[in-house]
């Protein structure tokens, strides 16, 4: 739905495109989820895919990386003690 008075802007925009040298890579007919620009619907889908990547990574490594935990406990006890002391000093609690 394009009103006549809007056409002026469209033409202006096309001029703009030429000026900045935009190249249309994929034909304009392809519309995904109501979006024509492949750079936008592409990133819309990529956002969802990268979240899926996070989920899959987390699930497949759910129990990995906890093995050295035991060894670190004694080291960490001393470390935490020092940290709390410093934090207390800093906050003046």
């Amino acid at each position: 739905m394009l009103r006549d008075d809007m056409l002026e802007h469209v033409i202006l925009k096309d001029d703009q495109r030429k000026r900045f040298g935009t190249v249309s890579i994929i034909g304009r007919e392809l519309t995904v989820l109501g979006i024509n620009d492949p750079w936008i619907w592409g990133v819309y889908l990529l956002c969802i895919l990268s979240t899926l990547l996070c989920v899959i990574y987390g699930l497949t490594n759910w129990n990995k990386g906890g093995e050295i935990e035991e060894k670190e406990i004694s080291e960490e006890a001393a470390w935490e003690e020092k940290e709390e002391e410093m934090q207390d000093k800093e906050l003046g609690v």
Binding site: C54, V55, Y57, G58, L59, N61, W62, N63, K64, G65, G66, I68, E69, E72, E76
Partner: peptide, 11 residues
């Protein structure tokens, strides 16, 4: 505390 928490945190 361990890499396991980081792995799970990613989700």
């Amino acid at each position: 505390k361990s890499n396991r928490e980081i792995n799970r945190g990613v989700i």
